[in-house]
Design a protein around this nucleic acid. Sequence first.
DNA 1: ACTATCCGCTCAATCGATTAAATACTCCCG
DNA 2: CGGGAGTATTTAATCGATTGAGCGGATAGT
Lengths: 350, 350
Amino acid sequence: MVTIKEIAKMAKVSTATVSYVLNDPSRVSEETREKVMKVVKKLNYNPNSIAKSLKIKKTNTIGIITEDVTVFTAPEIIDGIEEYAENHNYHIILNNIRLFKRIGNKYKDTAKFSKVIADVTNVLASRRVEGIIYVGAHCRDVTGVIGDLSIPVAYTYCYTTNNGAIAVNYDDEAAAYRITEYLIEKKHQKIAIITGLLDSMQCQDRLKGYQRALYERNLLFNPQYMKVGDWERESGYQAAKELLSLPDPPTAIFAMNDLMAGGVIDAANEAGIRIPEALSLVGFDNRECSYSYTPKLTTMALPLNEMGKVCAQKLLDRINNPGEDRQETEQIKLECELIERDSVAVNRRV
Amino acid sequence: MVTIKEIAKMAKVSTATVSYVLNDPSRVSEETREKVMKVVKKLNYNPNSIAKSLKIKKTNTIGIITEDVTVFTAPEIIDGIEEYAENHNYHIILNNIRLFKRIGNKYKDTAKFSKVIADVTNVLASRRVEGIIYVGAHCRDVTGVIGDLSIPVAYTYCYTTNNGAIAVNYDDEAAAYRITEYLIEKKHQKIAIITGLLDSMQCQDRLKGYQRALYERNLLFNPQYMKVGDWERESGYQAAKELLSLPDPPTAIFAMNDLMAGGVIDAANEAGIRIPEALSLVGFDNRECSYSYTPKLTTMALPLNEMGKVCAQKLLDRINNPGEDRQETEQIKLECELIERDSVAVNRRV
DNA sequence: ACTATCCGCTCAATCGATTAAATACTCCCG
DNA sequence: CGGGAGTATTTAATCGATTGAGCGGATAGT
């Protein structure tokens, strides 16, 4: 690998001059500049950014820690981060901790979890990344798992109330409100909901949005129309079966994710109930499968790419404007987007 | 950030000793070792791997270039790479070139494509990565897009015949052979195929496997049973419609990907033909959607994770055993796995 | 008692850049 | 002609580690 020294010798100048030619050409005379550049090109010189980083104490690198890259939300988030970072001349070191393969489900073993995180943050710190983005896999609360670092940290697709952290998520309540409102606009009044696991924030927030939408339109929340699922297709199927066999069944179902909406379709098919003619259905997440159901599912798209971008943007802001010590968590919530497809029709049975 | 110098001063030893304590403790007396380690812990010392890299000329870093991380194949491949790399103390710099968003579809603008690649390889080179893994998005031929680098390069999910490169893919022909054989084992004799775009290697190879399986079982290849699709669902639908209205329709259809298989399901539903009772169907890719179809689709799973692992493994082998200059491309083909689900039944109409 | 060996540690050069400060040179003006 | 100003270039220190060479002291062998 050719170094600045060899360039200097060959061009009969000092290394300083070469460096100036490369970084601050106006300081150097036209003549020398050309002389040096000729050698640079001839030797196909590629500056050693390791050496540069060491000297200027800047790596232009951020670390991404993903709980699991193979989860459906991760790629878009990473894409967003990467794009913003690249446009601002930052690079990314990727750490995928494979949380579930490694420590089993549910974040149960918090000691091991913390250990894993400590290991990767240590490595990132020793590589002198200027900031870290933590990408969750299941929107769990990860407050405290990353201890105090001297660099900014942004969290996305997970919750945190860490001091000074940036937390970028989407607005579950607003999204659930919007999609319920949408069903109401389609003249539905008997709108059932199939929830995910009740102990999750997502579920709680979506429930709030659903209830608020009903309330504001003077529709009563009917507890019979609420079934608790576990995010999996089968639970959607079971819930829908119960809902559809009610004496006064709903005309629309809001499943809190696309998987459970798939189960609703199964149940409807089985019962010979046509979607959307006899039953309207909406999902949540805009996963790949939602597009491949028959009928294509109307659902809420998560602003994943945007979440990545905003994470990167806020993080780089912090990095480049190291201001006052912040105590609060900067909570950012982005809007979801309603994706209208074929699973909702205007209710004709009012 | 605390340095080795401060440790040294505080422990009243030389920086050399500190370094030895950290890297080759046996060289140092028990006593000094403890003295130093105490200070290391007290000051929470984290070695600067930038400085280390500069000195020892080793970054323990590989670069990943993805054409598009959001493509369904990318996350598993990355996961595989990352896992192997991490286990061997290597880290990853991720470059997502967003090929299609950036230069439009189909790799048409090769000049721009090459320029983009040259830019990212330059950056990676200046960061002194020890090797590069190129992750394609659509199995295209990318021979020549990465020029000669002095470091090893592995390619996956794309084709290349670059000198000395490592190319890791899966065996399309064997997979197509296997899945056709599977249908034959289920007593099907009239097996139609819906291809992807004919100019792709994938399509050609799968077609070969299909034809070889027929040939070896003494089944005639019937050109009427072959329809050309374009990988999209709609084309599967059209193709299936034609196939199903043939005077002597097939009893099984092999769609070259899961998307087109979805189209077949649409056509079958429309025609009132039950899958798998009246028509067996297999897909290819094992995408998320294949699991959410009704019925769940029998398909071929790509060994994506394994491809990533093998890439990483071969690459690190090359890095750590820089042997002779190789002229040939090392072509590696991994086996796909048949995923049996609910879309195939034994043919009762023989 | 003298040398050889070994052990534990330190000295100082080095990796490949950056950059403040010094120097060299040119030009201009009183 | 001397000196100040301005421009172009070089000198040399520095970033934070690693590591070959060297040194001093203890131990052992003859």
